[in-house]
């Protein structure tokens, strides 16, 4: 045993990640700069990846020609209708499965089976049922966002503390009060996380459906540029999608902060 006086070293550093927006932004700008330098110096050939400046020019063309508004407008409307339909029906079905034996017994096996299908595989069926126009796209997005919402929602209901439900019953609350004041708010965190998952699934299905058959829409634009091998325009379309993804993510985070302040 040494008799020196040594300070106890701090050992609990690390494993506590936090989000620093500036580092995130710097990484985006850094990648863009690297790609631009690569393109200018010829390290990245024009057939491999377009220069960010060319993508920017294509984006600004898209914007000034008014085509962006047309494509984006068509896409956003499909996403809004399809997603709203899928998610609202999904929440209702999820709450039913979470609270009622009949719905659970029927719902769980079907949800498990259908979850495994890539929903875009069913597009031909939806085209036959709902027409080649908007109907089949709404249906694809609704169908694809419905199932993850159901799974998340009933998982959320299952995770509500049993004592809260016991409490409601012990005070003789009406079934409707139990549903609206205990079950629904208790499931809200899970529902919002379902929003997040289903929004990205919705965007993927939207683009896939538009690639198959659509005159306007970001997916239609991307497939046109693919056929013409216009890589800069193709990437301009992809950039729009990335921005869409970021905005949706931000919107849902904002909603979570607003609605889940009690946490």
């Amino acid at each position: 045993m040494r008799s020196e006086r040594v300070p106890v070293a701090y050992r609990a550093s690390g494993f506590q990640p936090s989000f620093k927006p500036f580092i995130g932004l710097a990484s985006v700008l850094g990648i863009i700069a690297l790609l631009e330098i690569g393109a200018r110096t010829g390290v990245i050939g024009p057939l491999m990846f377009p220069a960010p400046s060319a993508i920017g020019a294509a984006l600004s063309d898209l914007f000034t020609s008014g085509l962006l508004a047309k494509h984006l407008g068509a896409s956003l409307r499909r996403l809004a209708v399809g997603w709203t339909l899928g998610v609202s029906l999904g929440v209702i079905a999820g709450i039913a499965i979470g609270t009622w034996t009949g719905a659970r017994s029927i719902g769980v096996p079907w949800v498990a089976a259908i979850s495994a299908i890539p929903k875009i595989a069913l597009l031909p069926l939806f085209i036959i049922w709902f027409g080649i126009g908007e109907g089949s796209k709404y249906a694809t997005i609704a169908f694809g966002t419905f199932f993850p919402t159901v799974v998340n929602t009933y998982g959320g209901v299952d995770n509500i503390q049993r004592t809260l439900i016991r409490m409601g019953q012990s005070f003789n609350l009406k079934k409707s009060t139990m549903l609206t004041s205990i079950i629904l708010p208790g499931t809200l965190p899970a529902i919002l996380s379902a929003f997040r998952i289903s929004a990205s699934i919705g965007i993927i299905l939207l683009i896939s459906a538009e690639m198959v058959s659509a005159e306007f829409g970001i997916g239609a634009y991307i497939i046109q540029q693919q056929n013409l091998f216009q890589l800069d325009r193709l990437m301009a379309g992809v950039t729009v999608l990335m921005v869409m993804g970021l905005l949706v993510y931000g919107a849902i985070s904002l909603l979570e902060r607003r609605l889940l302040r009690w946490r």
Binding site: Q161, T163, L164, R166, M167, S170, F171, N172, L173, K174, T177, S181, I182, P185, G186, L188, W262, R263
Partner: peptide
């Protein structure tokens, strides 16, 4: 017959007054 629970069983998304209002609303 009214319970007091070991783990309190309060709704975290309701205020103190809101938690009490909940059990009165139906009665």
């Amino acid at each position: 017959l009214t319970y007091v629970f070991q783990d309190f069983a309060l709704l975290p998304w309701r205020t103190v007054a809101g938690n009490i209002r909940l059990v009165l609303s139906d009665h």
